[in-house]
Design a binder for these strands. Structure first.
Lengths: 216, 216
DNA sequence: TCAAAAGTGTTCTAGCTACACCCATGG
DNA sequence: CCATGGGTGTAGCTAGAACACTTTTGA
């Protein structure tokens, strides 16, 4: 049971890691997690374990990634890990324990066991789903401007995104709702940006087919 | 450890199930599987367990689906299942034990535990991946005509597919290679169909982005 | 009035759908 | 020569990428 909890902080994709104090792999950085309880399913258990690190209400999305099971993936007693991808909106600022930090995914510190691989898997899953689902909601605050959203998408994808096209992409799919409000412009002026929200804050597949749409 | 092994048989998507002899859920139909060994990872273990039901060389693709972990998912001692999706080409005709059969996915017999849900998950995964990867190779014989391939895609997707567009879809992505050979026409005549093969018989993502392609 | 930032309009193009038409074979 | 099925050409449409242009604000 491990979770790669991703969030965009200061325009960069970060992951929540804690520094191990004890051997094995002392001082290396590890994903939060623990062991499955007798009366829990894996999702419930993951949420319980995360609640020790972050406020669970701030985890806007949680999904299974994969099982990591190589017999030698960690020294000592064998442990099989069900890995999860968690997403925390950029506005949430959860209190975390002193040994825990948000680390930039592009420049990870030395990670424990196979946790680096899990983080890379999580990032790839997120990148894919940004393009054919509404997962963006889980990176964004409840209300946001298109510029803000652009920064979040760019950080998660690792390349620049055109705000015009982002706006139209989401609008065409009915995912963007104008709230009516607007954000005040910055100190150097400029037109105030309208505030939007996602129509739904639960995962929806917006592009079921790349090709092979059923005939009319 | 459970596998939903799918294959197109007689123009219909089937799954490999075996009928339980003993309680619990006697006479119901279950997915093949077993328990993880001490020195195996889940993939190796799954292949080992499948080898008891089908010839493993015929499983052209095997990937993790999800972990099923509800505490009450089956009576008796708790068991957590890592579910896999397996694919067997339509030309392979593996010898299976007497209690084991290919069952049509659209009309499953009464299934044991949560195995029905797993089969539905497997079908959905396959349907999605047919559209943005080359998984088709794992449903098809080594050499095939476009008409044959059309039948396989239609069976897996559950709706009709235009052979013209299928041909171009795969050609555009460089997945189709003409072998030069051709298949003899049927008893009522007709132009002989050319034989093709997939360029690669390992999973490749052919459409990485639905939208948000990186700028040039 | 100018700079800055947001938002709209428009053109270009790739690629999917649909369908008409041509090709190769058996009877 | 016709029926049958395979294969090609092509028109139409959708929607993403790129970018010019307009709008709204602060100084």
């Amino acid at each position: 049971m491990l979770a790669a909890v991703l969030s965009v902080r200061e325009a960069t994709l970060h992951v929540l890691l804690w520094q191990r104090a004890r051997a094995p792999h002392a001082h290396r950085w590890a994903l939060p997690g623990g062991v499955l309880g007798a009366r829990e399913d894996v999702r419930t258990s993951m949420l319980r374990q995360l609640s020790e690190k972050v406020d669970v209400r701030e985890v806007a999305h949680l999904e299974q990634l994969a099982v990591f099971s190589a017999p030698d993936r960690r020294p000592g007693a064998r442990r099989i890990a069900t890995a999860f991808l968690g997403l925390v909106p950029s506005d949430a600022d959860p209190r975390v324990p002193p040994d825990t930090r948000w680390c930039p995914v592009a420049r990870l510190p030395e990670t424990a066991f196979d946790h680096g691989e899990i983080v890379r898997g999580a990032r790839e899953r997120l990148q894919g789903k940004l393009s054919y689902t509404n997962v963006g909601f889980a990176l964004a605050p409840p209300r946001f401007t298109i510029s803000t959203l652009r920064v979040l998408y760019a950080a998660a994808l690792g390349y620049d995104v055109d705000p015009t096209n982002l706006q139209r992409f989401l609008s065409r799919r009915g995912q963007l709702v104008a709230t009516g409000g607007s954000a005040p412009p910055g100190p150097s002026g400029g037109r105030p940006a309208s505030l939007y929200r996602f129509r739904s804050r639960r995962l929806e597949v917006t592009d079921e087919f790349v090709a092979f749409r059923p005939p009319r």
